[in-house]
């Protein structure tokens, strides 16, 4: 794929991930990790080739069909994309509200999830008043709250300490255990090594799958 008339940032990337799998995407800065995720969460279309999700070719879908697919995908954006005018609670509830659920159905789940990621005391806080790591955890809470079938996380542990990174990783593992397909783009080699999960390594827009590293979890 390419951005506008720019150079190709991903070339000859061909991969197929089974449902319920857990992958890391690694590679140096600028390698195209975020771009690959964008293709999957439908923020970008490939300039050639196709993306299939849930057995459907999403590259040919009209705009009207995208929401249906996007609601099945949770994303932790690299730049978080929190809504600054909404409280932590409102930010987290966003996907559920968009999907048309009633507050009474999800209120307690949202509160519980926020408490779980350590934001129990900050539910009413606006994102600009949160610390970097708190924002990151908020973005993660929003991404997972609707129990998506696919979870894409772009540098989800960039701003948190090691302890919290492991905690977040365990949350992803738990989701994966419940059936969610997880793809995490990260620079955190330590986490990758520790997890023993398959790695998709990108370098200058080309894909090099690596076998699981490190000891089995």
């Amino acid at each position: 794929m390419r951005y506008g008339r720019g150079p190709e940032v991903l070339s000859d990337v061909s991969l197929s991930l089974p449902r319920g799998s857990f992958h890391f995407v690694t590679g140096p800065s600028g390698a195209g990790k975020s771009s690959l995720l964008k293709l999957i969460y439908l923020a970008a279309r490939p300039s050639s080739g196709a993306v299939r999700l849930f057995g459907e070719d999403v590259t040919t879908l009209g705009g009207g069909d995208l929401p249906r697919i996007r609601r099945r995908i949770g994303v932790v954006f690299q730049d978080l994309l929190l809504l600054d005018h909404l409280s932590a609670f409102d930010n987290t509830a966003l996907p559920l509200r968009i999907a048309g659920h009633k507050p009474s159905e999800y209120r307690n789940d949202v509160a519980e999830l926020l408490t779980w990621v350590g934001l129990g005391q900050r539910m009413n806080a606006l994102p600009p008043t949160l610390a970097g790591g708190e924002k990151q955890r908020l973005a993660i809470a929003r991404a997972v709250v609707a129990r998506p079938e696919i979870l894409l996380a772009d540098e989800p542990t960039g701003n948190v300490d090691h302890e919290m990174a492991l905690r977040i990783y365990r949350l992803f593992v738990e989701l994966n255990r419940l059936g969610t397909t997880v793809i995490i783009a990260t620079h955190d080699q330590d986490l990758v090594a520790r997890s023993a999960r398959p790695v998709l390594h990108l370098d200058k827009g080309r894909l090099r799958p690596l076998p699981p590293q490190g000891p089995a979890a």
């Binding site: 923020a43 009207g64 996007r70 994309l81 968009i98 999907a99």
Partner: peptide, 10 residues
Amino acid sequence: EVLHLTGAED
């Protein structure tokens, strides 16, 4: 953009 990416319809 966020609403869109979160699955909001036009």
